[in-house]
Design a binder for these strands. Structure first.
Lengths: 350, 350
DNA sequence: CTGAAAGCGCTTACAG
DNA sequence: CTGAAAGCGCTTACAG
């Protein structure tokens, strides 16, 4: 009973593994890190020994020797939903690699300068950029000048010189429209997002292309302007719904505006999805908070956090060894999540 | 230019400080940790030297020696808003103390057993419990049996045997009602939360007490049942608003239901706050997503994360030294955040 | 109250 | 391909 916890696991050290495998600690280290060449035979023996002892590297000890990676995470738009999902993934990766994640929020339009100063003063070796900072040219420029590696997260405009991890906004929106069409919708309206944001542009482009692909018209009256906020979705929805002939579905450029559409429809005594299908983009908690829940496009945000940490770590390692840094763009799979707000046979599922 | 980053800071080691202060490394260590007795004079010299060199402890090295703390964070209700704010605070504290935070989500009703097993297998030394897990007797019992320290976060029913960090739900709700009354409201309705949740009970109790304190009546028709979800807030709001004489304000037990009230009011052509004041509790992102933004009670969630890590670390240290563990309950300040949804002179601020 | 020695678990050169 | 030695920066006993 006593010492139960300590015995649980993680007892074995590199030396225990070395002894059991009949090799030197050095060799075990090499196998663990999989970096230098090791005889296949030896590798096998070490691996078996490690597995048998349930060996786990002591990341703290490794960090003490190597100098642990300090990864800065810069965020501005306090989208709690995005941040928490991202943090879960990023922390997970940091935890297992012994890196430290330093959060820095940048406030206001010009706040990014101070924020980056803070991170640099804190000694970070690389910085993760979340939207919309990841698309800011001045930010990327400053980081390049400081020679600090960066990874752009969920950017829609990946730069040639910066690593990035994202989904394909264009394809995501395309799939969503196809989904609506497959449900039998022919008259689909769209609410645009902030025209300055690249994802908004891509999603709109995809909407038009998907409609054209299906041979469907998009009269100007079927497109409304929005700014990504719930509030901006209110008048946009009114404009689309107060026409003599209503569209059968509205695709809003994000969940906030889709939620606003639902609210307006409700106020007009329209039942969603019976009288109107509604869908959004992002799969924020709002999508499952409002009623009916929103059909939307889901991004694997947690996985993006993991990958972002991997990418930045790799870049930092390259920099330390004075190797040329490798810019890598990773595209992760999105998926359309059908929920009640666009359900065809809604009585059945209600 | 070269090596710019490395020079930035964090260069100085314990030995540099020792040399400059003319003492041994040991003494510096003692001063840094502030634990054992050190001559005031010596302490001063060391502190000055440390400041001059901008010395920072290398947490990795310390962890290598001491064995770093592994802190498990158990969460179930995926309230992204709460989680992200909490993580920011908790990570911050972990970062500066060199602890590792291990996240574990528990799915389903019985998932907590597996989740705790996972954490224990992962070798955590203590566990942070977020709501609603923090109020689960079986969970607390299992942890006690395993002899793993725990800290309950945002619990409304702090246990005598478990450390906790929280705000005073009762006082928070009391303040909110007083706020509404100070705005001139006399006929205030309430939407209850899930009756199984202790915070819901406390907030309702506070509502009744505050009304009584002001000599105001609360007829049964002014109280509606809710379950904390947006969806449950819809019929509750309808019930309260479809009476011949409407209340002038509705206080919902959380933000989700308050948002539902706004939606229903809007559907009935009632303007918030002109025709009806609405307020919630928690200050989730939803409060600033919907329009008008919701007046609500804010919890310092980030700070709760910091404090939770402090409390659990202290407990783990006690356990390691086989000292009796100190149960500590920390009450943090909440505050009422007035926003447009309850603004008296709403034209002025719109 | 203060210090000299040894070691946390791992990795970086340097040899073979 | 493999190993012996030294050291990362700090702290734990053990002395004085």
């Amino acid at each position: 009973m006593i010492e139960k916890q300590r015995v649980a696991q993680g007892d074995a050290t590199l030396y225990d593994v070395a002894r059991l495998a009949g090799v030197s600690a050095m060799t075990v280290s090499r196998v663990i890190n999989g970096t230098k060449r090791v005889n296949d035979d030896t590798r096998e023996r070490v691996a078996t020994a490690a597995a048998q002892l349930k060996y786990e590297v002591n990341v703290a000890a490794r960090a003490a020797r190597v100098g642990s990676l300090r990864i800065g995470l810069l965020y501005s738009n306090p989208s709690a939903a995005f941040l928490s999902a991202f943090l879960v993934g990023a922390m997970d990766q940091c935890s297992s690699s012994g890196a430290r994640l330093i959060l820095e929020k940048c406030e206001g339009q010009r706040g990014w300068r101070d924020a980056i100063d803070n991170l640099v003063a804190g000694g970070v070796n690389g910085i993760l950029l979340t939207p919309p900072l990841c698309d800011s040219l001045p930010v990327l420029k400053l980081l390049a000048e400081l020679d600090i590696p960066a990874v752009a997260v969920a950017t829609a405009r990946p730069s040639k010189s910066t690593s990035a991890v994202r989904i394909d906004d264009y394809e995501g929106a395309l799939s969503m429209v196809r989904h609506l069409i497959s449900l039998g919708h022919r008259d689909i309206a769209f609410i645009k997002g902030d025209p300055k944001h690249t994802p908004a542009q891509l999603r709109y482009r995809a909407f038009l292309d998907a409609m054209e692909e299906a041979g469907l018209e998009v009269p100007p009256a079927r497109v409304a302007e929005g700014m990504f906020t719930y509030r901006s979705g209110l008048p946009a929805a009114r404009r689309l719904l107060e026409q003599s002939e209503r569209p059968s579905a509205i695709f809003a450029c994000n969940d906030d505006m889709a939620a606003a559409v639902v609210a307006v429809a409700h106020g007009m005594r329209l039942e969603v999805p019976r009288d109107l299908a509604v869908c959004g983009f992002d799969d924020t908690p709002l999508a499952t908070t409002v009623w009916p829940n929103l059909t939307t496009v889901h991004q694997p945000i947690g996985e993006m956090g993991q990958v972002a940490v991997e990418l930045i770590s790799e870049q930092i390692r390259c920099q330390r060894k004075r190797l040329p840094s490798v810019v890598e763009h990773r595209l992760l799979p999105y998926n359309v999540v059908p929920r009640l707000s666009s359900t065809r046979d809604w009585k059945a599922s209600a």
